[in-house]
C-alpha cells in the first residue's frame, strides 16, 4: 500500500507547502476553505511522518496492522 511509504507523506507535505506558497502568491490564504485544505494536508502529512519515523527509530513498524 502506498500509504505505508513515508515518501508518500513527504510528497504530501511538499504539496501542502507548495499550496501554501501558491496561496500566498495568489492571496488565497484568507479564504477559509483554501486555508483549511492546506492546513489539513500539511498537518496530516506531518503527523504521519512523525508516527512513522519515531516508530522506525525504535526499530518498530508503525504500519504493522496495515501491512498484513
Amino acid at each position: 500500500m502506498i500509504v505505508t511509504n513515508p515518501l508518500f507523506w513527504f510528497a504530501l507535505l511538499a504539496i501542502g507547502v507548495v499550496l501554501l506558497f501558491v496561496g500566498k502568491k495568489m492571496d488565497l490564504l484568507n479564504n477559509t476553505a483554501y486555508a483549511a485544505v492546506v492546513s489539513v494536508v500539511i498537518v496530516v502529512a506531518y503527523f504521519h511522518i512523525v508516527d512513522h519515523y519515531l516508530m522506525e527509530m525504535q526499530g518498530l513498524d508503525y504500519w504493522y496492522l496495515f501491512r498484513k
Partner: peptide, 24 residues
C-alpha cells in the same frame, strides 16, 4: 496579514493532534 490562515492552521494542528493521540 496571514492571521486567518494562522488561526485555521493552529486549529487544524490542535484538532489533528488530538486525533493522532487518540488514534494511537
Amino acid at each position: 496579514p496571514w492571521k486567518k490562515f494562522g488561526n485555521i492552521f493552529m486549529g487544524t494542528f490542535f484538532g489533528l493532534a488530538y486525533v493522532n493521540i487518540i488514534w494511537l
